[in-house]
Write a protein that binds this DNA or RNA. Structure first.
Length: 801
RNA sequence: GCGGGUGUGGCGGAAUUGGCAGACGCGCUAGCCUUAGGAGCUAGUGUCACCGAUGUGCAGGUUCAAGUCCUGUCACCCGCACCA
């Protein structure tokens, strides 16, 4: 029989659609499984071969779970706000909503043609007012709880997108999206206080099953450090605070540094005798872009403040104060105590400016480099700390500082608050109005959704205003508080807003009273398994955990953490091993693959490609292997015979493969699961026939990977009902072992022979059988046997001298 | 610099966690079949001085036994990047 994949695939996709085969059931008594993949941004380019790698893997898990009796929620939707649609709209004078609609239709068609078991009844779209009503609602809750605030500050400004960026969106000093230079701009921005959740975001990681690299990356990004904040007096009679994690080295502090933006400078301006040089340095560092600043990070620069000295609180010594851009205003107090002998950066700076160093931890050689090791050193030159270890000294100094009222314990984070406004059209309007009298006033919840007005032009402006600002009839409104004249906020929310809670909406997508019902959230939450890209680790994944932790605190969701398990797929690279991109000309279009080989082949190929977590290059010729496999599977119908139990020859094989596939799917080892099915298929053909029981098991195991061809075979072979209504095969551990096994016989670890023995053979018998082999007796004759060992079912090793 | 990871045939990758390295697939070679083949079938395929030796980035070590454990070292990839 011929495997007509096109006909078969279209047929079953239509049946699944009509029967709503994969709709999640509203039966909250069943055991549930909520599998989630990141919903795509529906770009004009259509689906990329990278998308199906993630979607197929979780589809396989979802399909298997259904057969195992779970009520499965596997939803899909569209993260449709964003710049590409807006830019396309600007260029072609089409409303972004129209662009989005067309792109969604195309994406949906493509996804359907791959046979994913999504519950399309729960499809959502972040640009739908019925959806973003609740995005705005969450913003209002954040505002009411003091977690959204407006602040005038220096922000990252993408010169090409003409829009501010969050810290997470700046990569190597350039815009994460377009790669353009990022400048600094003073702007008043809506901020979300994600830093209030820094501890919870770190500690929560201990309660979830995320792959380690995701956890470490989030921990590093949040960057918690435990230290001390302490006060240095000055010769002007005032004081300033510094943050340090090495309070133990306080006796070694030989200077201090404040950042160029530090407010002390203007306070001291008339006392600083070299104020011109200081101001020049301030200006110079303000001009540097993030990119330049990191580029120049090796060479330390700075200016000493003349006319003021700091006083080391532990010994009263007067030490100089510098300004230098290696101290950041945004971290700690924007000022540090410098201990050149025990900090690499201070060491470099001190060498350059010829500042003395004092060794306070013995164990290194400070004439060569800073000694920063905290584990081996012993305190010296430190009065009451002498002789202590670093850890002991930290504690003692901390106590001393606290007692004297000079310093206290302090935890700091690298994480900054989230810049939440964007000066673009195609985003959720921020539901706030500005009233001259009342200041910023939140829109009443009853007025949500606040929909985007229709504007003539979506062009971003150079002055940093949102395109919405020109819509005077939309902007001018009345104050919800006093009824007076007021203006709407014209900035919109960032890309990451809608995706920060979308998985909640899937639980109850048509609810118009709340973002989702309590019952639905109780039942479906948390997401059991979430797979997505590593590139979202410190963006979407972090943001959505923050929102969820907050929603939990205000009682909206039942659990603190949104995702019980997080895995991540590797990228699919072009055939040349480089990242797929239009400019490199190595992009593979999924539509072409489906046309030439079929969706099932595409699915099997992408899963067989290699280790799911690692990047893997696409290989056009390897696809043929997957196609050949499915061709052979389809031909099983030709060698189909009667028989309702596994045949003797294949029984062990079947039990082993059921075990292997069942376990491999849970571990995302799809490549080895497929390999074991291929192996089994080879054995079946060697035997020459397959019976009912065997075929049933085989196609059920293969079904999650290749759903169309297996449904078709199910029908052809006359099995009852549909394959997706059957149950997942089970295995018997005792039947997974062969009764006879081939073992290796080694002499001094070198293989001399292979023998077949009963699996349960005794050690003595195995060894004597081994010795009976010619090659073995030859190798040991005339030598003394020192040791003989038998590793059950593996090998015999005879050690001779 | 800090953090995470990876090095196994011509290629993608396996290896029950210390027990026969190279499963499965691609590619390649030879043969068969075919008017033809970028189709199918059969056999072979780590390397070499091919009855034997050797082999998992490199150098040591532990062990009866090491891809796997330990020490050192090199290379590459990813994330963060002066975070005090």
């Amino acid at each position: 029989m011929n495997y007509e994949y096109k006909k078969i695939e279209e047929k079953w996709q239509k049946i699944w659609d009509e029967k709503k085969t994969f709709a999640a059931k509203n039966d909250f008594t069943m055991p549930k499984f909520y599998g989630l993949v990141e919903f795509p941004y529906p770009s004009g380019q259509g689906l990329h071969v990278g998308h199906p790698r993630s979607y197929t893997a979780i589809d396989i898990v979802a399909r298997k779970k259904r057969l195992q009796g779970f009520n499965v929620l596997y939803p899909m939707g569209w993260d449709a706000f964003g710049l590409p649609s807006e830019n396309y709209a600007i260029k072609n004078h089409i409303h972004p909503s129209v662009v989005t609609k067309n792109n969604v239709a195309n994406f949906k068609k493509q996804l359907k043609s791959l046979g994913f078991s999504f519950d399309w009844d729960r499809e959502i779209n972040t640009t739908d007012p019925e959806y973003y009503k609740w995005t705005q609602w969450i913003f209002l809750q954040l505002y009411k709880n003091g977690l959204a605030y407006k602040k005038e500050m220096s922000v990252n400004w993408c010169t090409s997108c003409k829009c501010v960026l969050a810290n997470e969106e700046v990569v190597n000093g350039v815009c994460e999206r377009c790669g353009s230079e990022v400048a600094h701009k003073e702007k008043s921005q809506w901020m979300l206080k994600i830093t209030a959740y820094a501890d919870k975001l770190i500690d929560g990681l201990d309660t979830v099953n995320f792959i380690d690299r995701v956890k470490t990356q989030q921990r590093n990004w949040i960057g918690r450090s435990y230290g001390t904040q302490l006060k240095f007096g000055t010769t002007l009679g005032d004081s300033f605070e510094v943050y340090t994690t090495r309070a133990d080295t306080l006796f070694g502090a030989t200077y201090t540094v404040i950042s160029p933006e530090h407010p002390l400078i203007s306070k001291w301006a008339d006392k600083i005798t070299n104020i011109d040089a200081v101001k020049a340095y301030q200006e110079e560092s303000a001009k540097k872009s993030d990119f330049e600043r990191t580029e120049m990070s090796k060479d330390k620069t700075g200016v000493k403040l003349e006319g003021v000295m700091a006083i080391n609180p532990v010994n009263g010594k007067e030490i100089p104060i510098f300004i230098s851009d290696y101290v950041l205003i945004s971290y700690g107090t924007g000022a540090i105590m410098a201990v050149p002998a025990h900090d690499t950066r201070d060491y470099e700076f001190a060498k350059k400016f010829d500042i003395p160093m004092i060794e306070v931890v013995a164990g290194g050689d400070i004439s060569k480099e800073a000694f920063t090791d905290c584990n081996t050193g012993i305190m010296v030159n430190s009065d009451f700390l002498n002789g202590l270890t670093v850890d002991e000294a930290k504690v003692k100094m901390q106590e001393w500082l606290t007692e004297k009222g000079i310093g206290e314990k302090k935890t700091n984070f690298k994480l900054r608050d989230w810049v939440f406004s964007r000066q673009r059209y195609w985003g959720e309007p921020i539901p706030m109005v500005y009233c001259e009298k009342c200041g910023y006033v939140p829109l009443p919840e009853s007025e949500l959704p606040l929909t985007l007005p229709n504007v003539e032009s979506y062009e971003p402006t150079d002055n940093g205003e949102s395109p919405l600002a020109k819509m005077t009839e939309w902007v001018n409104t009345t104050c919800p508080h006093c009824g007076g004249q007021a203006k709407r906020e014209t900035d919109t929310m960032p890309q990451w807003a809608g995706s920060s809670w979308y998985f909640l909406r899937y639980c109850d997508p048509h609810n118009d009273k709340e973002l989702a019902s309590k019952e639905a959230l109780e039942y479906w939450g948390p997401v059991d398994w979430y797979n997505g890209g590593m590139e979202h680790t410190t963006l979407h994944l972090l943001y959505s955990r923050f929102w969820h932790l907050f929603l939990h605190d205000i009682g909206v969701v039942p659990t603190a953490e949104p995702y019980a398990k997080r895995t991540s797929h590797g990228m699919i690279l072009g055939e040349n091993g480089e990242k797929m991109s239009k400019s490199r000309g190595n992009v593979v279009n999924p539509d072409d693959i489906i046309r030439d080989y079929g969706a099932d082949t595409m699915r099997v190929y992408e899963m067989f490609l290699g280790d799911f977590e690692k990047a893997a290059p696409w290989s056009q010729s390897s696809i043929k292997g997957s196609k050949r496999f499915l061709d052979k599977v389809f031909s099983l119908a030709d060698i189909f015979v009667d028989g309702d139990t596994y045949s003797k020859e294949l029984e062990t094989d079947f039990h082993k493969v059921i075990k292997k596939v069942t376990e491999d799917i849970e571990n995302l080892k799809m490549n080895t699961a497929i390999a074991s099915l291929m192996s089994l298929l080879n054995n079946i053909y060697e035997k020459g026939s397959i019976n009912r029981a065997e075929l049933k098991t085989f196609i059920t195991l293969l079904n999650p990977f290749a759903p169309h061809i297996t449904e078709e075979l199910w029908e052809i072979c006359g099995f009852e009902g549909m394959l997706n209504e059957t149950t997942w095969p089970t295995f018997d551990e005792s039947k997974c072992v062969d009764s006879t096994v081939e073992i290796a016989v080694q002499v001094n670890g070198k293989i001399k022979a292979r023998i077949s023995v009963p699996a349960d053979i005794s050690s003595n018998e195995a060894i004597s059988l081994a010795k009976a082999e010619n090659a073995v007796s030859e190798a040991i004759s005339g030598k003394t046997v020192i040791k003989e060992l038998y590793v059950p079912k593996r090998l015999v090793n005879i050690v001779v001298k």
